[in-house]
Amino acid sequence: MKILVPVKRVIDYNVKPRVKADGSGVDLANVKMSMNPFDEIAVEEALKLKEAGKAEEVVAVSIGPAKAQETLRTALAMGADRAILVETDDAVEPLAVAKILKAVAEEEEPGIVMLGKQAIDDDSNQTGQMLAALMDRPQGTFASKVEIEGDSVSVTREVDGGLETVKLTLPAIITTDLRLNEPRYATLPNIMKAKKKPLDTKTPADYGVDTAARLTTTNVSEPPVRQAGEIVEDVDALVAKLKSMGVA
């Protein structure tokens, strides 16, 4: 079985995003960019399945600018076998990403497409579900445990009420949550090796997908800023404040 892992280049999670003064978006110039953390978890899970003999090949794919190559190299350095960059400078929305991934998946025929549950830039949490819909495949979203059992996969999902387990017929789409695993770091020798691994470049047009945006962002603004309040002296002062607010 092959596993396809889509990865996205996003602002590093340690960087505090700054809104541009003209309201056109978030300033990404000279900002550290990294692989979306949930996608790292997806790469790790795919590699683990390969190491456990449940999968033969891990293919990373990214839809984005030429620089997304770096993100793919990171996936290759972690251990993915080869990579595909679907290059575009447009901001591609989740629906169009799902259409491109569907086309890639039709060529690659993976048993599992393993995606992050959300990207930490647009926070949409849609792409995996949309891909599953377009391919009429089952979806195991927000996974904290993945177990392959013959021609099905058991997925434990982090849901609002606790942990839900579903059983899906393969091929399936899985989206990862934080506690699925701890992604490995790429070691220096593996980073060197990754430079020689195959990386194919395509365009959305190669897959016949129209990436025109359906949503127009008319403004991006700062959220209302909370003012820091007061530091109270001790517990008694805190209790007094709480009582005056009617909390206790």
Binding site: P94, M130, E158, A213
Partner: peptide, 23 residues
Amino acid sequence: ATTTGKNVLPRVAAKLDVMQVSD
């Protein structure tokens, strides 16, 4: 935008060929 809504609705959106507006 609960885990149920987030799980089901994008599947509806894709079938309708609509870009969902999340959250």
